[in-house]
């Protein structure tokens, strides 16, 4: 269950990165021109989303590992 949750948070980071790159990848924003409102919006929202995903991913991972430490050493898995 937690794996899907971690994957979801990681996916949000990926979507954020895509959103930052989207205006330039799709050619909507020429390199030399002033940024349009759409480009500004996409870059800002994408950056926020990527930051959220990044922070969330590592916070969730840290919580997961903290729980593992709290449980203590587990017996090795039987083959």
């Amino acid at each position: 269950m937690s794996r899907w949750g971690i994957a979801g948070v990681g996916l949000l980071f990926v979507i954020g990165v895509w959103l930052v790159a989207a205006p330039f990848v799709t050619g909507e924003q020429p390199d030399s021109a002033t940024w349009t409102a759409a480009t500004r919006n996409d870059v800002i929202v994408g950056a926020v989303l990527a930051l959220l995903g990044f922070t969330g991913f590592f916070t969730v991972l840290a919580g997961h590992i903290a729980d593992m430490y709290a449980k203590g050493p587990q017996p090795p898995a039987q083959r």
Binding site: G5, L12, V45, L49, T59, V60, D67
Partner: peptide, 25 residues
Amino acid sequence: MTRYLAGLITATAALAAGVWLMLAP
């Protein structure tokens, strides 16, 4: 508890961002 809360907060903020993206145009 931390990981559940972090996951929920991140996802809720992302939901708000998604709604804004759909309204922004």
